[in-house]
Nucleic acid binder design. Structure first.
Lengths: 146, 146
DNA sequence: CCATTTCATGCAATATAGTTGCACAGGTTT
DNA sequence: AAACCTGTGCAACTATATTGCATGAAATGG
């Protein structure tokens, strides 16, 4: 997703110490082209060197709280995580394939959302607008045709 | 939500037999002004007469499969359920309060989404576009000010 | 009118995802 | 040195959802 991102700098900007584990989590999230579930991230990290499942959850929560990482809801059970919008990453919608469960990033331009009306009239605080497109990805369509 | 909806007719249109339990689940979902979690629905039904938790899950899955009910992702753990868009119900976005966890329906007009570009260029099948606004509802803001 | 099948439901067990409480090691502050 | 923070690990736990199997009632077929 962001091979030119400096993860140390991202953590510093969020006023978080750059521990090994935090960097490792952030690298997995950031280097992947599509959002990953906490379980995926844990299993990936575990392969290279030992880390506790709970630590991964805690680091993810921390990163989400500090706006480094974004929690993205899937059409399924587990949430996914991707880099939060920043200078190099514009907010963008995601696509969820209900067949294979894979999430993918869509182009920021693919959908045009005008929330002006809502911002003006909504009587609460709005933090973000999440857009998810559900359907079946081209791979799954191809596979079901055979 | 839809006191003028005929739930028997909705089930019939979806080619589903109108069993007592299905009607009860659909009534709870349909008569409520905001989406409910499977657990909420179960607890509500249980109060009036006995039903199994698993039955509620199964009926909800069935209704979602047949397009009578819509599964709506929250910012939290459990999914919520509301009536699927139909003649009386236009698709609309939802608001999730990250403080109290309450989901609410927003006006269909509050957000304007132009997905024309995506429909034309996306190489898979698109079933629906789900929009969720996250933030803090006015009640929670008021409570935290005291 | 009995035998067979089908369907909706219930119950127990299990799976998955996430959370909590407590301990401890290493560094920092007093 | 004592008190303290912080990051991490481990075990137990909670909440949510799913699976497998049993049963009873209605529909179907001889």
């Amino acid at each position: 997703m962001c091979h030119q991102c400096d993860y140390n700098a991202l953590l510093a900007a969020a006023q978080l110490e750059a521990t090994d584990n935090r960097l490792r989590v952030l690298e997995v999230v950031g280097n992947n082209g599509f959002p990953l579930s906490a379980g995926d991230i844990f299993r990936t990290l575990e392969r290279s060197s030992s880390i506790n499942r709970v630590t991964v959850y805690r680091i993810l929560d921390l990163l989400v709280d500090h706006g480094v990482v974004e929690r993205i809801s899937t059409g399924g059970r587990a949430a996914c995580f991707g880099l939060a919008p920043n200078d190099h990453h514009r907010p963008h919608p995601h696509f969820y394939c209900k067949r294979c469960g894979q999430m993918n990033c869509l182009n920021p331009e693919s959908l045009n959302i005008d929330a002006g009306n809502l911002w003006k009239t909504f009587p609460g605080q709005i933090d973000r607008v999440e857009v998810r497109v559900d359907g079946i990805c081209k791979n799954c369509i191809r596979n079901s045709e055979t």
